[in-house]
Design a protein around this nucleic acid. Structure first.
Lengths: 229, 229
DNA sequence: TATAAAAGTTAGGTTAGTCTAACAAAATGT
DNA sequence: ACATTTTGTTAGACTAACCTAACTTTTATA
């Protein structure tokens, strides 16, 4: 059985490779993601290689094996299902669920997590709009665009956010933007890169930093790689 | 914040003292309860004393301080609420919930556990019939009698079991006895101590060992220390 | 292409929680 | 009341996960 720590390493590796569409990642990057020192990662990666969860050669890059990918995906599945539970059954807010799920995700029971999935009626997305991996470790990552990338006057829907820090989520709540909201970009200012969006009949101005952290899909096609324009 | 291990020590201490109505417990007994060696307990108890969770002097007995009692109770509260959740919301059976709750009980969030309590509609008892401590660490331990102790022809209700091993629970299921069942003892055989009980119109013979592990209360008074006979 | 910077490794140390083995204190039983 | 058994302690060692400091390899750049 994997330790708490090993699971966190595999989860981070899934996030840094699969979710970023890259094959491999370096020791330093993984270390800073996990908030430990590179020396610690060096050791741990050797251990994970012994257990066949990663491919690795000294001074090389780290990539996940199939079993490593699966284990990492399972942690993310558990995390996102618990988040959904906390949000939809226990009335926690959008920005509170992440921390709690960090603890709950380490409870190992396939049966528990599958029952939870059923209890929640097989949700496809968590409260942040991220897709929940299936029991087989499959995930449909929608090809997402950020609010910064989309065309003017084209209806889009907010489906996820990139930065899940609670300050960020609280900021979104404060300005009145949330998952599921429909919007159109009515103006993009060349000079200072400010984006004006119309949402729910109101107009708001959004900074480039914020726009880059909000994922949207085309409302018409229901995908990001939209072909309707 | 308490570690996983420290919490388990405090939980065990509550079980071995408060739930047994004794003041204090020895190192060996605690060690065997936790399935570690006495040497390990010796060390750990020193640490818990430093943190003011227990009273202890070298070669003496261990007792809980008020804060130790409270922390231990909170672990038990979490354990029993999670058991109730698994049983009543996720359809786990009586004998499966214990193990899973052993992991879930270590998720620390007062808010989570209070929300869960509310979601479950403030249950008073867990699926094994044990009382759930309040958020303040209070527990009403019903003065329970075992099936071995009650009078003939006096209606009682099964409220809890002492041995929560899954073999025991499965055995109960198999013979068709469960929490909440109403029964009367129709005969107690002096010679071999076999007890005959009538439950749901059927008659069954119960060994002394089994009878000692089943807690009942008087159906009429709704307490064990019943005054109606 | 030589060298500086960045990335990664190794050696040795720390802490929490466990162990075994040897010892010390307390309780028990003639 | 003394010997034996039970109970508890101490010392020394191990593992997992972390650290720092010093070193080595790779990469990038002048």
């Amino acid at each position: 059985m994997l330790s708490f720590t090993e699971e966190n390493y595999l989860k981070a590796l899934v996030q840094l490779t699969i979710f970023e569409s890259v094959e491999e990642v370096g020791v330093n990057k993984l270390a800073s993601n996990l908030e430990v020192k590179p020396a610690t990662v060096s050791d741990m990666v050797r251990k994970l290689k012994e257990k066949s969860f990663v491919n690795y050669e000294k001074y090389g890059k780290i990539s996940l094996t199939e079993s490593g990918r699966l284990e990492g995906m399972m942690v993310i599945r558990r995390h996102r299902l618990w988040e959904t539970f906390l949000y939809s059954k226990l009335d926690f807010s959008w920005d509170e669920v992440h921390e709690l799920a960090e603890e709950l995700e380490h409870v190992h029971s396939k049966k528990l997590i599958n029952r939870l999935d059923e209890f929640l009626d097989f949700p496809a997305f968590d409260p942040h709009g991220d897709a929940i991996p299936s029991a087989e470790g499959e995930i449909k990552i929608p090809f997402r665009k950020t609010l910064a990338e989309i065309d003017l006057n084209h209806r889009h829907k907010v489906i996820a956010v990139n930065d899940i820090s609670s300050e960020f989520l609280q900021y979104l709540d404060r300005i009145g933007l949330g998952i599921g909201d429909e919007l159109v970009v009515s103006n993009k200012e060349e000079f200072d890169e400010l984006t004006t969006v119309e949402v729910g009949g109101k107009s708001m101005v959004i900074s480039p930093k914020l726009a880059e952290n909000i994922y949207v899909i085309c409302s018409k096609c229901n995908k990001a790689k939209c072909d309707c324009n």
